[in-house]
Amino acid sequence: MAYALQQLINGVTLGMIYGLIAVGYTMVYGIIGMINFAHGDIFMVGAFLSMISLLGLAAFGITSVPLALALTLIFAAAIASLYGWTVERLAYRPLRGSFRLAPLISAIGMSIVLQTFVQVSQGARVKPMEALLPGGVQLMDQGGFAVQLSWMQVAIVITTLVVLAVFTWLVTRTSLGRSMRACEQDLKMAGLLGIDTDRTISLTFVIGAALAAVAGLMFLLYYGVIDFYIGFVAGVKAFTAAVLGGIGSLPGAVIGGLLIGLIEVFWSAYFSVQYKDVAAFSILVIVLIFMPTGILGRADVEKV
């Protein structure tokens, strides 16, 4: 019981990180129908930016942890947004309205560029960082097994929820959100009605990248180690989460993220760590067999 509760806490924390990344995938997919393969790498860049920022702030003598985290959050999100914007501008916009596979290959190319760029500029070695928020609260103790809720986990869950709340407000209550939803329904029609679709798409990438950067910061805080390859692994799982939740659906992305996080953590805890990814992918395949458009996805009714 205690053990399971501990896994639940860990799973939710991890799931939040996946969910944040998955939102970026699902948004871009919803609007322009492409898999943004470079998104996982934006997340990775976000993690590196966070590390650089934290080290830099420490060098400037800013030792207040909440302040440093807040500044880092803003810094990483801002710079990662620029990355997202640039990637869209260079690799995707010229291919708008092009054939289906060209943007995909372009995205893979961009992903390779970002990954290699970080690898050569930061080195291939794993970068460790000391825990910023040590300690936590002991929830219960059962037969010598203590259930820990670390401050880090609390911080991750709270930050994610706040960020998602802001994001939900942005999408449902602002005119930008309205444009985004209109573009998602029908890009051409939205353009005819006077929505600047290019700008809306750019902003979608910017918002997605900012969320990914937040996820990057969370990842850095949670695991304390990052390398240039985390983007691929987390990206694939976040995309899996987006598909699991029903691609194009924003709540679906978060639900999918949580599910993938929970599956991964529980499988590792009760069965085998090595096969945790196999478990996550297998669940994906099984879910898709019974719900071909994911959990919250719109049914893909073919008009004939």
């Binding site: 060209a102 943007p103 290959i105 372009s106 961009m110 560029v113 290699t116 050569v120």
Partner: peptide
């Protein structure tokens, strides 16, 4: 050397932009 993959990735993007088909 290490920059090879960088060129490779950039080349993928460039070729797709120039000849998407």
């Amino acid at each position: 050397a290490d920059y090879r993959m960088l060129v490779f990735g950039a080349a993928l993007v460039l070729i797709m932009v120039l000849r998407p088909r």
